[in-house]
Amino acid sequence: MIDIKRSANRPRANFSNNFEELLMDKQKVVSLPMSKIEPFSFNGDPQPFAIDENEISALADSISKCGLITPIIVRSISSNSYQILSGHKRYAACKKLMHLDIDAVVIEVTDDNVAFDIVCQANIQRKEPRPSELSKMFNTYLSLRKNVSADLTVNEISNMFGISRKTIYRYANISNLDNGLAELIDSKSIQIRFIEPLAKLSPEQQKAIADYYNYDERLSSKELTLVIEQMTNSGSSDIYDIMKAIRNLSEKKKEPYKNSLYNEMYIKKPLCMQNMTESELDKIMYELLDKYLENNFKSTKKVTTNEK
């Protein structure tokens, strides 16, 4: 077993694709009883990455046909007990298949914070995590900033993951959202840029928006922006009244000159006329008609005279 400890240059996640190979270098694969292994937890909280049942079923089918190709990685937490650092889905799939033992590589990690680094790296290097998973992860790192050595700054967390401080706080803010809104952000129905303004709304307003998406229809980015603005200014959570007002206003903007002569002529308004009033536009149209009729009358008169 290798002992990974926190040092002045504490291990940072590099999220390389060969992460597990690096940890397993020169390590011996052993067979461990499933009953002696438990999922990772940090300060009593489960690891932040969700385990999808569909993925587990697909993985179980693969293991039943081809066997477990990549062993899980565990750390020893007592003389006869182990905790998973990498391979939660593989463990769950083997458990679904009712395996009694599982192939594993044991590494000695005595520092819980280093163990958390490894869990995060092992998950992120496999697939893109959901925003809600990143929220749990970043909130844990932000709590470490307060409770662990002062060397863990937000800038260091930013450098570790290659994203800005603003993005870290944005993802962390998902924890302040209604669960329905968090699911909509996970599914990309709502863009992550709306996290902060949504988090400022009341729980009732957040739930109203989530319910509208789930039971009625999606909102465009422009509509969601207007809904958030109206809720913020009015304090109302009645999204149906707000959407009715927004759409009525939108319809009026589409036909600003519905009863005017200008509109009846089916002529597209030039840019130079954008700020003109309805009466000013009507005046111009009448002047143009007068000139047209006058010229037409003169032309007709000449033709008549020539014929005589």
Rank of each mutant, 00 (worst) to 15 (best):
A8T: 14
R10G: 05
P11Y: 05
A13D: 02
N14S: 15
S16H: 11
N18Y: 01
F19L: 04
E20F: 05
L23S: 07
L23R: 10
M24N: 15
D25F: 13
D25R: 14
V30H: 07
P33G: 03
S35W: 09
E38Y: 00
D45S: 10
P46Y: 02
Q47K: 09
F49N: 02
A50F: 14
D52I: 02
E53I: 09
S57K: 15
A58R: 13
K65M: 14
I69Q: 09
T70V: 14
V74F: 03
I77R: 04
S81C: 03
S81Q: 05
Y82M: 00
Y82R: 01
Y91S: 00
A93W: 01
K95S: 15
K95R: 10
K96D: 08
D101F: 13
V109Q: 05
D111A: 00
D117Y: 13
I118E: 02
I118V: 04
V119Y: 02
C120H: 06
N123G: 06
Q125K: 10
R126L: 15
E128G: 05
S135N: 10
S135H: 09
M137C: 02
M137K: 03
Y141V: 02
Y141I: 06
L142N: 09
N147H: 13
N147G: 10
V148H: 06
V148I: 12
A150F: 14
E156W: 04
N159H: 07
T167K: 11
T167E: 08
R170E: 10
R170L: 02
Y171F: 10
N173M: 14
S175D: 12
S175A: 15
N179M: 10
G180A: 05
D186F: 06
S187Q: 10
K188M: 06
I190V: 05
Q191R: 09
Q191W: 06
P197S: 10
A199W: 04
A199K: 05
A199C: 02
L201W: 12
S202W: 08
S202Y: 07
A208D: 02
D211I: 08
Y213H: 07
Y213F: 14
E217D: 13
S221L: 11
K222L: 10
L224C: 00
V227G: 05
I228R: 00
E229W: 00
T232K: 00
N233R: 08
G235R: 03
G235C: 03
S236R: 06
D238M: 04
I242F: 03
I246F: 00
N248D: 09
N248C: 04
L249C: 08
S250V: 00
S250E: 12
K252C: 06
K252R: 10
K253S: 09
K253V: 10
K254V: 07
Y257T: 04
L261S: 03
Y262M: 13
N263F: 14
M265N: 07
Y266L: 14
K268D: 11
K269V: 08
L271G: 07
C272Y: 15
E278P: 08
E280T: 01
I284C: 09
M285A: 11
L288A: 14
L289G: 13
L289R: 13
Y292Q: 09
K302V: 14
T305Q: 15
N306T: 15
E307G: 07
